[in-house]
Every structure is written in C-alpha cells, then in structure tokens.
Write a protein that binds this DNA or RNA. Structure first.
Length: 307
DNA sequence: TAGCCGTGGGC
DNA sequence: TGCCCAAGGCT
C-alpha cells in the first residue's frame, strides 16, 4: 500500500484491510474482487492483485511466512528492491539497505549527487551509498529515520534545513544548491482528457459498468464513462443507442464537473443524468446502495457516488 | 530504458 | 486553479 502512496492516505485502508483479511492465509484465500474492493480508491490496483498473488506464494511455497532472504522476497510478485529492503530490515531487523524517493532526495542533497536519481547510474550510486551508510545494527530504524527525514524535513519543496540534523554536513547546503538537487528528469507534458460520466438511477439502484479486464483500472466498476470528442475531433465517446445522456447533473446546486488525474493525464469529467431504454450492454448492471461497499469501484466512481 | 499504472494533498 | 510529488514495480 505504501508504494508511491503517503502514509496518511494508507492508514484507513490498512485498518479496514487488516480487519477484513487479518492473515496471509485469509488474503490468499480471498477472491480478487474482494481484495480489490478493499483497495478501492487507493489507486495502482495492480498492487492489490500482486499482493494477493504474493500471499498465495507465501502460503504455498514458504509455509505461510514471509521469506527471510532477499532472493526469496524479491521473487514475490510486487516485491522490488525497495520493498524487499523495507520488509527485511523492519520486520526482521536484517541489515538490508533501501532506496525510496525520500532516501534518493536526502542522499542527492547530502552528497550533492549530479546523476538523476531515476537514471541507471543514479540508482546504482544511491544504492551503493545506502549500503555504505547502513549501520550494522538497527537497519530497520535507520531506514525509517532516513525516509522520515526526507518526508518531513528534506522535502521536495519548502525544505526545512534549519531543523535538519545533517545541515552542517550537507554538501548541497554548503554550496547553496538545495533547491537544484536532486536533478529532475524532464517531465513529459500531461495529456488532457475530457470525460462524460453517466448518472442513471432506477429507484434506489445506480447504473455501473465493469471496465475491461486489461489496461487502466482493469476490472473495476464505475458509472458508464466515455471519452468526449476533443478539440482535434478524435475519440468521440460511443454510447449505446439505448442510452441517452441528458442534462448535466447538479450536485449541491453546482454543475457536477470533476477534475481528476491519472499519471500524466489531466482529466476533466462532467456528470450527466442519463436515461436508459431497452436492453443493456453486458458490462452494465444496476447496483443497490448496499452492494457498493463490496464492489471494486474506481476512485472516480467513489467521488461521483459520493462514497 | 522508458512508459505505464491512481489518487490525494500541498502550494 | 493547475501543477508537482509521493514508503515503486513491471514490462
């Protein structure tokens, strides 16, 4: 859950997840749809699928216990170099290094590294330093302290050098280059996307569509959504003929326009009341309010449904 | 190697 | 508001 996600965001999801699936055996036995429903709104949903797959491997191949070796950990789905170092050092207090976004920023400044952290050379240098700095005892606490320093003091912006315990030995600080480091990769411009979201009601039921099993938000549920024709005249949304989008929905007296983002996509969405006649596409279903909590909804769907 | 995958918060 | 960024991993 913590991969690319802030602690504050994760906490509530983690508590619900652990209350529902408290053991690795329970997670391994759970339906993918169930796991995704607990992940609903957290994003990067492949993490949820891999977590379940890892639980299956742990139960099936490791006697229900997380591996205690780097190779064993790295072989699990969803466990990369960072996660392996994090779990082994914190859960088992093994002397394992880690590099995440925070450590990369702290080290880039502390040692005034010129390489971009995302580059191969930059990663190699960061991991070398992480191992070089690692104390023989207490690697887990060391790693957490390093990440905490990056999260609270040595931040991307509004850096708090005055509160930093390493300020006197920081090479970026000494050369007044804190704001320039770490060197950032040239950002790719975001793609603007305009969506139309259908809001169709039938008594207490709401119309939802299950997304395709591949690609973005794979297999998750959302109110029927189509990409609107953009200025260049491409990608016009294809609504079924039985379906008519009507006026823009008003929520709290204002037009229901939602801004949203998916990595490198700036999304503007408009929610429209819709009428449905005749048969529905197979992916469309009327869903009762009690079922919504048990479904794998997209974050956008939760916004629209105000859950 | 670089593109892809979600969402929420800070400024 | 719009942009940047975050306890990454996979292909």
């Amino acid at each position: 859950m913590l991969q690319q996600t802030r602690v504050e965001t994760v906490v509530d999801y983690w508590l619900r997840f652990m209350a529902e699936l408290p053991t690795v055996q329970a997670l391994a036995a759970a339906e993918v749809e169930h796991v995704l429903s607990l992940w609903s709104g957290l994003g990067y949903y492949s993490r949820a699928r891999r977590l379940r797959a890892a639980a299956l491997a742990i139960v099936g191949d490791h006697g229900g216990e997380f591996p205690r070796t780097r190779a064993g950990a790295r072989a699990l789905p969803g466990v990369g170099p960072y996660t392996a170092g994090a779990v082994l050092s914190m859960a088992y207090d093994l002397p394992e290094a880690l590099v995440d976004g925070n450590v990369a920023r702290v080290f880039s400044r502390l040692f005034a590294l010129e390489e971009q952290p995302a580059s191969t050379a930059g990663q190699r240098e960061l991991w070398r330093l992480a191992w070089e700095c690692l104390p023989e005892q207490g690697a887990g606490e060391w790693n957490q302290a390093l990440m905490e320093l990056g999260a609270t003091v040595c931040t991307a912006r509004a850096v708090r050098c005055g509160e930093c315990p390493l300020a006197t030995v920081c090479r970026a600080r000494a050369t007044d280059r804190v704001a320039e480091l770490p060197r950032l990769a040239r950002p790719t411009p975001p793609v603007s996307v305009s969506l139309e979201i259908a809001w169709a009601r039938r008594g207490p039921l709401v119309l939802l569509e299950k997304r395709p099993p591949q690609g973005r938000l794979a297999g998750l549920w959302e109110p029927p959504t189509r990409e609107v024709e953009n200025g260049a005249g491409q990608k016009s949304g294809l609504w079924p003929p039985e379906f008519r989008a009507q006026k823009t929905l008003r929520l709290g007296g204002t037009l229901a326009r939602l801004s949203h983002s998916i990595t490198r996509h700036a999304i503007r969405a408009e929610v429209r009341e819709a009428a449905v006649e005749g048969s529905l596409p197979t992916a469309w279903h009327w869903v009762g309010p009690g079922d919504l909590w048990r479904m794998a909804l997209t974050g956008m769907a939760k916004k629209v449904l105000r859950l």
